[in-house]
């Protein structure tokens, strides 16, 4: 997979084999917008506020996270992964949705597996090992998006 910054301030993703498509689809599967929104809402410890937060803010968080995932899902659909996949063009206005979706996926994987970087190579469980690898690749993609798209002067 290649991720290349574009002149308009966005980026494009070129897949090189089927595994890249599986990985990109995994972003959607690994993320859990509703769970993340609930976890963030639970950060509000003050009983004075927490009830209103659940009623008014939580639905907005869920909607926002779902909307970001929908942007990625739509981009993958447009690129038509399969025999002759198209490059995925991500315009600057969608960079944040990609970053958000990758972050949602990583937050959920971390929540499920509690990775320990010091013992990463010793993971016996194949599902855990695969999840760790996906998490590392998502992190690399996020770093590129942050450096090349989100931190660009006009972003």
């Amino acid at each position: 997979m290649k991720l290349t910054p574009t002149l308009d301030g966005g980026f494009r993703i070129d897949t090189e084999h089927d595994g890249d498509w599986v990985l990109l689809q995994s972003i959607i599967d690994d993320a859990d917008p509703e769970k993340l929104a609930h976890q963030l809402s639970e950060s509000i410890a003050s009983s004075e506020i927490s009830e209103d937060w659940r009623d008014f803010v939580l639905p907005d968080l869920i909607e926002g996270f779902n909307s970001d995932l929908a942007t990625v899902r739509e981009a993958l659909k447009r690129a038509n992964g399969g025999e002759n996949p198209e490059p995925i063009h991500v315009p600057p206005k969608e960079s944040m949705a990609w970053y958000s979706s990758l972050n949602q996926a990583r937050l959920n994987l971390e929540e499920c597996f509690h990775f320990d970087l010091n013992v990463a190579s010793k993971h016996e469980d194949i599902a855990r090992k695969m999840a760790f690898l996906r998490s590392r690749i998502y992190l690399e993609l996020q770093s590129l998006i942050l450096d090349r798209a989100l931190n660009a002067p006009d972003s």
Binding site: L40, I44, A45, S46, D60, S100, L107
Partner: peptide, 19 residues
């Protein structure tokens, strides 16, 4: 403070507010 906390959570940061 509520507005900022909501915004920070929308960016997926663990944010809260207190007196």
């Amino acid at each position: 403070a509520e507005f900022y906390t909501q915004q920070l959570q929308a960016y997926q940061l663990r944010a809260s507010l207190e007196r």
